[in-house]
Amino acid sequence: MKLKLSRDDLAFRLHNRADTKLIVAMINKDQHHMLHGYTAEKFEQDLDEPSERIRENTFIVELANKMVGYFSLCFVERETHISVYCYATVDMDWRRRGIGSAMFAYIFDHLQHAAQQGNKPIHFIHRALTSIPGETALGVNLDMEVQNCLQIMCLDDWSRAIQDIQPNGFRFRSPQLEDASSWAEIYNDAFGGNKTAVSVIHEFQGVEFSPELYLMGVDEKGTPVGLICATNRGNHARIPTLAVKREWQRHGVGRALLSEMLRGLRAAGALDVRLSVESRNEAAQALYTQCGFEPEYQRIHYSTIFSKI
């Protein structure tokens, strides 16, 4: 029986660049981790996402000077509050020992202090994968509310993946830096987000940007109306974003973008592809199912609020 650890058994300190390779190795040890195939260069780039204060809120968790986990907190300014997302992992060899609970106790204290110092309440979101034992239990045990649920879907049977359907006058092209504002506009229109051109340029200039894995769909006038992007690490691909302007939805644009991207991923040697979709978005789930994607596991978003007492 593994002995449980408490917060007092662990040391927490700010990340420094010398930790990065160890963090990436810890992430890649888990073949099922959503970031499997991560590189040190990509990790460092992500810490410098504009206006999200990630580098100054990335911590190492140690037991007797041995790294057993890490977490990064991403602060996103909203009009009425600050959303904080957490990227974290516990070393596979140290899971189910109470380290995750200790990390969350530290995070909660850190965010309560930040809320006391700031002018807006903080909405913390814990993204728990049902494929990793204990992650959903953390949200439940800490009395966090379920905010929403994403279905992770996987394509590994390519027989239905690629469909030659393209709306009249519609074409694909790779985005350029000057398309950053249009990329952000499409994303925000589709998802109600607050992505900025600055953050898009940061992404386009990043180590994983590839013209073949980023596509914009434009109408007959050349106006961007949809977008899709992907990563392909070790022949295991992910599609983090597929977005279509609302006025162009249900016109076959999403299907055309998805099919074109799958064609490129298949040619690049991808063995399987994963993406996530809101569990309530039945239309999108139907599209992915028609293209050969099958449900694999879920990502449940739990939330809690910190404000001035």
Rank of each mutant, 00 (worst) to 15 (best):
D48I: 14
R53E: 09
S199N: 15
R78M: 10
N168F: 06
S276N: 13
G193R: 03
E145A: 04
Q112P: 09
F209C: 09
F191R: 09
A230K: 09
Q151I: 04
L3R: 13
Q117W: 04
N148H: 00
A18H: 06
R173W: 03
R17Y: 11
T136L: 01
G98D: 14
P50K: 01
D48P: 11
N28H: 07
Q45D: 11
Q151V: 03
M26R: 03
Q166T: 04
H236Q: 08
A284R: 06
R266G: 06
E185F: 11
N119V: 12
L142R: 05
S210K: 13
D9L: 03
A137F: 02
A102V: 13
S6V: 06
A11R: 10
H110Y: 03
F104C: 08
A237F: 00
N188S: 15
Q298A: 00
P295I: 01
E77K: 07
F59D: 04
Y214Q: 10
N16Y: 07
V146D: 01
S101F: 02
T231Q: 15
G264D: 00
E56I: 01
I228P: 08
H123A: 14
P211I: 11
R274F: 07
G69W: 06
L227K: 12
H251Q: 05
S159C: 00
R280K: 12
V218F: 07
N16V: 09
N232D: 08
F108Q: 04
V200R: 01
E208L: 14
L22R: 05
Q116P: 10
F12P: 00
T58D: 05
K308R: 15
E135S: 02
Y297D: 00
M26C: 05
N65S: 15
E49C: 15
M1R: 15
S83I: 11
A256G: 00
G69K: 02
A243V: 08
W183A: 05
I309H: 11
Y38T: 10
S83K: 09
E56W: 00
L73F: 07
C291A: 09
R263D: 01
Y70M: 13
H36E: 15
C229L: 13
L155Y: 02
S101C: 06
K21D: 13
F59V: 06
C74E: 14
L177N: 14
L150C: 00
K308G: 15
E203W: 08
Q166I: 09
M1W: 11
M67R: 14
D48M: 12
V198N: 01
E203D: 12
K2W: 08
R266F: 10
C229Y: 15
E282I: 05
S101M: 03
A115Q: 04
N188K: 12
R53W: 08
A267M: 08
R266K: 07
R266I: 12
R299C: 03
C149P: 01
H301I: 14
F71V: 08
C229N: 13
G192S: 12
H32M: 05
V253C: 08
V198S: 01
A11W: 07
R266P: 04
S210L: 10
L275V: 06
L73D: 06
E79F: 09
I228E: 12
L47Y: 10
G169A: 06
L155N: 08
L275Q: 04
E178I: 15
E44C: 11
I122S: 04
T231E: 15
